[in-house]
């Protein structure tokens, strides 16, 4: 098994926040903590793009490098996890993370009063026994040990958010890009609201001309 990764397709994300809701519901994440959020660029302007962001489980994670209590660890599947028993809530990981993934239950409180850091676990729990109540209370549900992928990706209605083995995820994305083409007309508004119909009509016309040409030959 290769490395576990998330991939968000900006052409498909419709900013429904289903991933955020799925995550909060699955792990019973407390108020004020968002392990995942949807970021929109050029909101309201034609051509706006949204992507779902959480911990990206970096290959060389900066949070792991800066943690003074060395509470982070990496699983064999490349998932970056942390031990809440060791966390002192200093917030260094938050400053080091380029995605703003580490969250603190008490918000931007004074040093030491932020509470234990909480972040996306790729639905892989923590150091406690898999599926135990203790693990659920601290880190949420361990779906990976149940043979399931993260709830956010599995709940994504447009399958913009992909999760799993990085090679498979990139294969799916590559296949998708090859089929839909590139550019603004590829997916999103034009395909969902009319553009796709034009595309289909063009394809049908092409097929008809090909059929007629074949019939003519016969």
């Amino acid at each position: 098994m290769a490395r576990m990764k998330f991939l968000c397709d900006a052409e498909r994300c419709i900013e429904c926040n289903g991933c955020v809701t799925a995550c909060k519901n699955e792990h019973e994440v407390p108020w004020g903590v968002n392990r995942r959020r949807v970021v929109t660029m050029n909101d309201g302007v034609p051509g706006e793009r949204s992507i779902s962001v959480s911990c990206m489980h970096c290959a060389d994670a900066p949070c792991m490098a800066v943690c003074p209590t060395d509470c982070f660890y990496k699983t064999e599947e490349g998932v970056v996890l942390h031990d809440k028993d060791l966390c002192i809530g200093c917030g260094y990981c938050f400053f080091a993370c380029p995605f703003g993934a580490p969250q603190f239950p008490n918000g931007p409180a004074a040093f030491g009063a932020r509470g234990k850091m909480d972040k996306c676990t790729f639905c892989a729990g923590g150091p406690e026994a898999d599926g135990s109540e203790e693990e659920f209370k601290k880190y949420g549900r361990n779906r990976l040990s149940e043979g399931k992928l993260p709830a956010c990706a599995e709940m994504c209605s447009t399958k913009a958010l992909l999760a799993g083995d990085s090679s498979v995820v990139s294969d799916i994305f590559r296949d998708r890009v090859l089929r839909r083409g590139k550019g603004a007309e590829a997916w999103g508004w034009s395909t969902a609201y009319g553009g796709g119909k034009q595309e289909q009509t063009r394809e049908r016309k092409q097929e008809r001309t090909q059929e007629q040409a074949q019939e003519g030959k016969q």
């Binding site: 660890y73 699983t75 898999d130 990976l144 040990s145 149940e146």
Partner: peptide
């Protein structure tokens, strides 16, 4: 940490 395939499932 327990590996994901070492759990009860």
């Amino acid at each position: 940490d327990t590996r994901p395939w070492e759990g009860p499932a």
